[in-house]
Design a protein around this nucleic acid. Sequence first.
DNA 1: CAAGTTACCTAGCAATTTACTCGGGAATTA
DNA 2: TAATTCCCGAGTAAATTGCTAGGTAACTTG
Lengths: 157, 157
Amino acid sequence: MRLSTKGRYAVTAMLDLALNEGKGAVTLADISVNQGISLSYLEQLFAALRNKELVRGVRGPGGGYYLTRGADEITVADIICAVDEWVEFTRCGGRENCHAGSRCLTHSLWDELSEEIFNFLKGISLADLVERGQARIEAAKEKKAKVGSISSQERAA
Amino acid sequence: MRLSTKGRYAVTAMLDLALNEGKGAVTLADISVNQGISLSYLEQLFAALRNKELVRGVRGPGGGYYLTRGADEITVADIICAVDEWVEFTRCGGRENCHAGSRCLTHSLWDELSEEIFNFLKGISLADLVERGQARIEAAKEKKAKVGSISSQERAA
DNA sequence: CAAGTTACCTAGCAATTTACTCGGGAATTA
DNA sequence: TAATTCCCGAGTAAATTGCTAGGTAACTTG
């Protein structure tokens, strides 16, 4: 039970792309220097992000990475799902038969927790992080508590 | 970023104790058979639980483990904190200097997430799990949503 | 075209964690 | 004394994390 830095690295790197939106490509070398992450490790993370079609790479001089969608259409959950296995979350696991009562109880507890975490991360887009910084996170929480459903497209500006 | 089964094992085992509250000690051998967890692994988990004074062990025939407090005074968060390192959660981490802007943003995001998870787990006691099973979990979420913390269950969206 | 730049790919590594086995104790009860 | 049960430490295979090393492929510019 730990929040590894892997997902955080990915989110941080994606934030670098979002901050540069509309201003050309961002090279991994830049991100590596900016964020203090090893270049090869970044390449691995971005391979995963590419697979999930969150970023697009352009080779050659002047190349680098772009977001494939707007920063408001990419959530933190998307990023973390891409780089982490996330196996026991959402729906991928949890299909064990529940024979013993207490085992069943903890299974449903874990499912609930997974959903909590997932929904929280799904409610925060890159644009949220960019535009308003930490204050925005609080807002996302308020919004979720009120509405109960998340659509990151409505920017309450 | 994964929810390991370690904490789940511990919660499950503690549930066994809670289910037997007032009916004498529960041996690790029993739990091992009931839950299909290796005895030695249970011993390690219970060593941690003992350190945090969540359980009390009694040796000799007729011995076993008791909860040191009522099941309503032990939360899932207590249990998981005892057996997991939980390092990057709550407050233990996050005291890094935030130089780069995007790094700072993700740090605060991670702090928020940690607190979300912690609060969720803190809101569920062993008694909750025992008395009402899964229904109780929903109730805990409702309670929290009212107070304004987080939570929103829109399953099967 | 050639050279440089950048993405892309594969392999391997040390450290840590997980879940487990083994082999002993030490305290308590009968 | 003997059985039971907690207690303790060492060791292990597999997986994960974060990283290094050493390539190849595509693209742009001089």
